[in-house]
């Protein structure tokens, strides 16, 4: 995924992110430490319960890794970039939906690219549709199916995609475009 964040201020942002990412696990470990000191029985119970959850997700997690590998092998970031905002009408929408679904990485890493596309004239509706479809995560499907079943996942996926079109339409109707080069949707 495209995020050239090794230079300048982005480096500081990355450090802050790492700190924030480390803060949560560290806090959980501290809580467990305190619990084992104060209520060892409850702490053991909590740990056993976590173990059960891990057992439930270990196979789906392995499948997640395999799917990640396949996506990384066959989908280059350029494919995603090229999809957003290409084509007009239905074709443009389908390509943008596809880009949202196959996009990976945290959302904040996508903002610079989306800003770039917006300035180049890609319409707000398509950007909103792209962001909406990031809710569909093909490589996380094994975990979702393990918990909720494939019928639920299928229905949710269909309505999430339809919902993203609703968001795109609403944004198009309510937000004034920054540029007059809106040649999409």
């Amino acid at each position: 995924m495209i995020s050239l964040d090794k230079d300048g201020p982005q480096s500081a942002r990355r450090k802050r992110r790492v700190l924030l990412t480390g803060f949560f696990p560290a806090s959980v470990l501290v809580i467990y430490g305190i619990l084992f000191a104060v209520m060892p029985d409850k702490a053991s119970m909590a740990l056993r319960s976590s173990g059960h959850v891990f057992l439930n997700i270990i196979v789906p997690l392995f499948l997640v890794f395999i799917l990640m590998l396949i996506l990384n092998l066959f989908l280059k970031p350029a494919h995603t970039v090229k999809f957003i905002g290409k084509g007009v009408g239905i074709k443009g929408i389908i390509l943008t939906v596809t880009a949202g679904i196959i996009s990976i990485g945290p959302i904040f890493a996508w903002y610079p690219l989306l800003k770039e596309l917006q300035e180049k004239g890609v319409g707000n509706p398509l950007i909103a549709i792209f962001l909406g479809n990031r809710a569909v995560k093909p490589f996380l499907l094994p975990i979702m199916i393990a918990y909720f079943g494939w019928i639920y996942v299928l229905i949710l996926t269909v309505f999430t995609i339809l919902g993203s079109l609703g968001v795109g339409y609403s944004v198009g109707a309510l937000v004034k475009e920054k540029t007059s080069l809106s040649f999409h949707v």
Binding site: I31, Y32, M45, A46, S49, S50, V53, F54
Partner: peptide, 9 residues
């Protein structure tokens, strides 16, 4: 997952 354990307990 560890937090869920605490939540469950």
């Amino acid at each position: 997952v560890l937090l869920i354990g605490i939540f469950n307990a």
